[in-house]
């Protein structure tokens, strides 16, 4: 649980922003809280709130969430060695709490030999509590606080991802996959593609580059599940 605490600092501003934007779009405190509690995905919530009209289009909101969160689909697959050890509803309940940050922490833990899938649920739940709390706070403070876009506090969201990359770095063999991922994501972004396409295109091509490098020198031991 302690491992999730730094992320609470990083994501407090994001939760506040979601609360403030929701209030600005006319959502009640109950609606904003329900959205953060159930959907629990910051980027998707911001995109959906951007499309929020009166009356609300449930289809547009659901499609926005689907598009932005497609990037989560491969995460569950990466964590399969942990999830395979869980039975029945525990698997699907744990997946309910999966977010980027609990995923990054869990992969780092898994690679350093951790075997406890409860780590994923624990970090996911910690971040969830904070997410709902800061959304409520942001909604309540919406009339008082004005954070202009581009305020340095918003760097916190990006900074958390940058920091989480450090424990994911495994040395020189990551250089090519990461470089390809960055180049493709930037190119897709420049080409005007919206979320989630730059992320998905970058992630998949970077991962493919890494897999191709392993496959190239002949039938070496494959990575496989660890």
């Amino acid at each position: 649980m302690r491992r999730a605490v730094p992320l609470l600092i990083g994501f407090a501003p994001v939760g506040l922003v979601v609360g403030i934007v929701a209030a600005g779009k006319g959502l009640s405190l109950l609606e904003a809280t329900l959205m953060s509690g159930l959907v629990y995905a910051g980027a998707a919530q911001l995109v959906a709130l951007d499309l929020w009209q009166d009356p609300v289009s449930p289809l547009a909101a659901a499609l926005a969430a689907l598009a932005v969160n497609l990037r989560m689909a491969p995460m569950g697959a990466v964590l399969a060695p942990w999830l395979d050890r869980l039975r029945g509803w525990r698997v699907w309940g744990t997946l309910l709490t999966l977010v980027d940050h609990s995923f990054a922490l869990s992969v780092a833990e898994m690679r350093s030999g951790g075997r406890d899938a409860g780590f994923l649920l624990g970090t996911g739940f910690c971040i969830w509590l904070q997410w709902v709390g800061t959304t409520m706070l942001g909604h309540t403070l919406a009339d008082v606080v004005r954070l202009p876009p581009g305020h340095p506090l918003f760097f916190a969201g990006l900074g958390a991802f940058v920091g989480m990359l450090v424990p994911l770095w495994r040395g020189a063999r990551d250089l090519v996959p990461w470089g390809v991922a960055a180049a493709v994501a930037v190119a897709a972004n420049r080409a005007g593609l919206g979320a989630p396409w730059p992320v998905l295109a970058g992630a998949l091509s970077g991962a493919a580059a890494g897999a191709a490098m392993e496959a190239a020198p002949g039938p070496r031991a494959p990575g496989g599940h660890r």
Binding site: R71, G202, A211
Partner: peptide, 24 residues
């Protein structure tokens, strides 16, 4: 096999792809 190898490389690539355009 290739897709399994991809999964090994996916986490880092995913977050790099996330961060790179935003940093630029």
């Amino acid at each position: 096999r290739f897709a399994q190898a991809m999964l090994q490389h996916l986490p880092g690539a995913l977050f790099v792809a996330y961060v790179a355009p935003a940093l630029l």
